[in-house]
Structure formats: C-alpha cells, structure tokens
C-alpha cells in the first residue's frame, strides 16, 4: 500500500490534456480526411455545446445544491449577444450595414465574440444571483423560471433584432472564416470551448472557492458561521454558470446560423436539467458523459419524431425510480476506476 502511494506520487502525470488534445486531433484529422460527414460533425458540435450546458448547470444545481431551471434564458442572452456582435463586426447586413472590421479578421476575433456573449450572459445571471441571497429552494426555482420567461418575452418584443421571427446572418461570419482557411471552424471552436469550460469548472470546484460553493449545498447557515461569504459564492457560482451557458448559446447560434427566442424557452432549460440529473449532481465527468449520451439518444430517436419526447422523459422517470443519483452519483470517473487516478489527479491534493 505504502509502495503504491509512493509509486503514484512519483508519476504525477496529468493525462487530461493528452487525452482531450489527442481526441480533438483525431476528430480533426477524420474531418479533414473526409471520414466524418457533415451530419456527424453537427452531432459532435451539439455534443460539445451540451457538455458546456450540463457542466455549467451542474455548478448551481449539483455543487451548490440550488434548483435553477432557467438555463435556457442565459443561453438566449449569450446567443443573441454574440450573434449581434458577429453580424455587426464581420458581415454586411441590411440592418447593421457594412462590417466594422474586415471579415477575414473573424478567424482571430471569433472567440472574442463568443466570449463577449458569455460575459453579457454572466451579468444577466446577476438577475438570479441577487434574489438568491434571501431566497432558497422552490422560491428560487420560480425566480429562475421567471427570468427565463422574461428573457424570452423581452427578445420577442424587440422588433429591431427580429422579435419572434428570429435572427440570422451568423453563417456569413463562418463562411468568411472558411474563405481564409478551409477548416471546420465551428467544430474546432466548439471543441476548444467545451474543453476549456470543463477545465475551468474542474479548477473552480477544486479551489477553496469551489469548496465554499459546495459548503452551501451541505449547510448554508453553518457555512456562513464558519466564515464563508455565501453571498459572494452565490454570485460567482451563478455568474460562472450563466456565463458558460451564454458561451454555449453563442456557439449554438453560430452552428445553426439561425436563432429565435422560442428555441431557448423552458423546454431547452428542461433539456439542461435532464442532462445534469442524468449524469448525477455534483459529478463533472457525469455531466460530460450524460451530455454525450443524451445528444446521442436524441439523434438515434430522431425517426420517432414526437414519441421521442415521450420516451426520454419516461427514461428519466425510470432513472429517478431505480437510480435516483443519476449515472455517476456524485462520483467522478476516477472514483469508479481508481486505477485512472494517478493520471488525472493534481499534485497538491
């Protein structure tokens, strides 16, 4: 035993970057080699977006133990912000006129546009974070639902960005990028952003800040007595969560090329909830796994059309009956396969 520990400690190898980078390179190679067609690329992009969504909602619903059901609203804010920025800067549109920057600069500035959407969405998260100081449980759930409805009906009423007819033109940015270099840019950025957000959440949750967020789930009052500034934690948790949802929304908008408010309604939020609870509350690898499984299921069941939305809820109900902790519970992949531990563990833990 003692030997094993020293052996483990000597290795200190962190395999995450290698695994993810390798995987991304393999996918990229397959795409460029023409092995993966457009359809599978789209599915991969949706997997990436769903990973961001489920992992970010897991911060609030899993680690912090609150019940937020308005994730789609923040996605909407991010999607619209980044779409408007992208159309404003890189494309010629009848509404916003000539591009402010040469369209080819989108190659470098595209991530900034997406991050811009994330930042605005993070501030939109304050709308939920501030009431959460005084409110808990069911009442907070209502506030998040109300926030979702507010964002959707706000955009529905903003005629100058299309209102309920939706907003489009983001594909032109993508084409401008592809004119510079013939690469699958949306796929690349989706993979980059989903990997980065998983890293961000992992680091956040392992820091003392993250422990503070978890302490709210365990016992908020005790945490406060022990000197945890719970209001601070809540602001950070909600802002990170909604900001990442905004990033996912921006990517979603650029993958589809068309958005309208009703695609971010309470159904979208419910999809996010399903992914979090399918994976298990407070398990990051669970969230990633369930995002993959869920997207895959949606695609497999596409021929069933509307019955799909009967079968998926039914599966979740059965899951709640027989395995309420989700796929992973609050464990990580390394808890299930302890042999992986030395490769994924950080030195200072």
């Amino acid at each position: 035993m003692d030997n094993a520990i020293t052996l483990v400690n000597k290795k200190h190898i962190n395999l995450w970057p290698a695994v993810l980078g390798g995987g991304a390179l393999i996918i990229l190679g397959l795409v460029l080699g023409g092995v993966i067609n457009q359809y599978i690329q789209t599915v991969l992009m949706f997997i990436g977006i769903n990973i961001i969504l489920s992992a970010s909602l897991n911060i609030v619903n899993g680690y912090m133990g609150e019940f937020s059901c308005g994730h789609g609203g923040f996605m909407l804010v991010g999607a619209y912000t980044s779409s408007i920025l992208s159309v404003l800067f890189f494309t010629k549109s009848p509404w916003l006129g000539a591009p402010l920057l040469p369209p080819s600069s989108a190659v470098f500035l595209f991530p900034l546009v997406i991050i811009g959407g994330g930042i605005v969405a993070a501030f939109a998260g304050l709308l939920v974070a501030i009431p959460s100081f005084k409110t808990r449980d069911d009442y907070l759930a209502i506030i998040t639902i109300a926030a979702n409805f507010i964002f959707v009906s706000l955009v529905n009423n903003l005629e100058f960005i299309g209102g309920s007819r939706g907003f489009m033109g983001m594909k032109t940015t993508i084409y401008a990028m592809e004119d510079v270099a013939d690469l699958p840019f949306t796929l690349i950025w989706t993979m980059v952003f989903s990997t980065l957000s998983v890293f961000l959440i992992r680091r956040l949750m392992r820091s003392t800040f993250g422990k503070g967020i978890s302490s709210i789930r365990h016992d908020e009052i005790s945490a406060e007595i022990m000197g945890v500034n719970t209001n601070n934690m809540k602001i950070v948790a909600f802002m990170v969560s909604s900001g990442l949802a905004g990033i996912a929304g921006g990517l979603f908008a650029h993958v589809l090329g068309f958005i309208n408010p009703s695609s971010f309604n309470i159904m979208k939020s419910t999809e996010c909830l399903v992914m979090v609870y399918l994976g298990g509350m407070g398990s990051l690898s669970g969230s990633v796994l369930s995002a993959v499984v869920f997207t895959f299921l949606l695609e497999v069941m596409r021929p069933l059309q509307i019955l799909k939305w009967v079968i998926i809820p039914l599966m979740l109900i059965l899951l709640m009956q027989f395995r309420p902790e989700g796929l992973m519970g609050n464990r990580e992949l390394t808890d299930i396969f302890p042999k992986l531990k030395p490769y994924f563990k950080r030195r200072d833990l």
């Binding site: 909830l273 039914l314 979740l316 109900i317």
Partner: peptide, 9 residues
C-alpha cells in the same frame, strides 16, 4: 424532476 417529466409525457 419526475413531476416535470410527467408533464412532458
């Protein structure tokens, strides 16, 4: 969650 899903069904 079960209640939400029943609504969908």
């Amino acid at each position: 969650i079960t209640a939400l899903m029943l609504g969908f069904i």
